[in-house]
Design a protein around this nucleic acid. Structure first.
Lengths: 187, 187
DNA sequence: CTGTATCCCAGCGGATACTG
DNA sequence: CAGTATCCGCTGGGATACAG
C-alpha cells in the first residue's frame, strides 16, 4: 500500500498493468509467448509462413521466395506440419504427376494477426518505405492491428491486467547463470 | 487470364490475397516481417520485452523473470536499446545509489499488439490452460487481437491485397543453396 | 546490484551432393 | 520438381568468473 515511496515501487504498473500476485509465481512463467515461440519462433518458419500467406504452396516456390535453402525449407516445413500449423497434401493437376502442397490449417490461418502485427510494426518503426502495402480488398483501406477486449473497447498497453490461472510453473529445467530462482527461501 | 486451368494457378489468391505482380519482384523481398525480426526476432528479446511490459525495469529483475542468464540479458538489452525499442535511463530512489532502468520507448510500446498476438495464438493453439489471462482493466473483458482496416472493417486472412511499393529489393547478399534466384534470364 | 568477458555447446541456416 | 543428408560457420544462449 505504501508504494508511493520511490520512483519505482516494486510492483509498479508500467504498461500491461499489474499481474495479480506478481511475486507469487515462478519467475520464468511458462507464458503463451514462449509456447508460441517454441513452435514458430525461428526466422525461417515465420518467413515461410509469410510466403504461404502470400499464396505459395509448392516446396520449390516457397523455398525460393523465402530465400532459404531447400534443406532449411524441408526441415522447417516438416516442423510446421508436426506443429499442426501446416498440412501437407498430395494433389495432382491434370496431365501432371502427383505433387505435395502445403496449406495452412485452421491454427495456421490464426497466425494472420501475428504476421500482420510484425509487418505493421516494421512498416512504422524500421525506417524507409514499407516494401509492401496491405489494403482491404473491399474498401481499399490500409490494414492495422488493434488490441480489443471482447466488448470492443480498444486497448492500449497499460489498460490491461494479467492474472495467473494457477498453472504457471515452467515444466522445463531452469536456467542458472545467476538468472536462477531466488535461493529456496520458503516463507 | 487463363488461370482456371489447374487446381493451383500460379498466382492464386490463397489467403492474404494476391500480391500485385507476384512474379515481378525479387524472390526474397525485404519484407517488413524480416526487418522486424532483425531487431526483435530472438527468443530472449521477446521474453525480455514481455517482462518489461509486465512492469519490470531493473536489470536483475528482468533477467531473473525472463529466465535468461545475465550475459544474455546484457547483450539483448543493449541491442534493444540500440534498436530504439528500449531506453536505458539512470534513476535514483531516495537513499539508494543511482541505478539504471529500462523503459519502453514509443517504438517499444508499439510492440504491444505483437506480444498480445503471440499470447493469444499460444492461448488458443498450444493446448492446456492459458497460464495468464489478460483482461481489460475497465470492463474485465478478455483481450483479443484483430486485424482491421482503417475504416474499421474486420479483416480475415484472405480479405486483403498486398501491393509492392517499388523498393522491394533485398539489400543483403542472396542465399544460394538451390534457393537461389532463377538463373539470370533477362527478359 | 548491474553488468561484462570467456568458454562451450546446441541449433540455425548456407553450400554441396545425392535420391526419387 | 521435391526433397534428404552432410559438412561447416555463425550465433543464441547457458555456466562461470570477474568488475564497478
Amino acid at each position: 500500500m505504501n508504494n508511493m515511496a520511490g520512483h519505482h515501487p516494486t510492483d509498479e504498473v508500467t504498461l500491461t498493468g499489474r499481474l495479480a500476485d506478481r511475486d507469487s509465481w515462478d519467475p520464468s512463467t511458462w507464458c503463451s509467448v514462449e509456447r508460441t515461440l517454441d513452435l514458430i519462433g525461428t526466422r525461417s518458419a515465420l518467413i515461410l509462413l509469410r510466403e504461404i500467406f502470400y499464396g505459395g504452396h509448392r516446396f520449390d516456390d516457397l523455398a525460393r521466395r523465402a530465400g532459404v535453402t531447400d534443406a532449411i525449407a524441408s526441415k522447417r516445413l516438416r516442423e510446421l506440419v508436426d506443429a499442426g500449423v501446416l498440412d501437407r497434401r498430395p494433389y495432382q493437376e491434370p496431365g501432371q504427376r502427383p505433387r505435395q502442397e502445403y496449406v495452412l490449417t485452421e491454427a495456421g490461418r490464426a497466425l494472420f494477426p501475428v504476421l500482420i502485427a510484425l509487418v505493421r510494426w516494421g512498416d512504422a518503426h524500421t525506417g524507409g518505405e514499407p516494401p509492401i502495402r496491405f489494403t482491404h480488398r473491399d474498401c481499399g483501406g490500409a490494414l492495422d492491428v488493434k488490441v480489443l477486449c471482447e466488448h470492443g473497447h480498444e486497448i492500449e498497453a497499460g489498460d490491461t491486467i494479467g492474472t495467473a490461472t494457477g498453472d504457471t510453473r515452467d515444466p522445463r529445467p531452469p536456467a542458472k547463470g545467476r538468472a536462477r530462482r531466488r535461493p529456496p527461501q520458503q516463507e
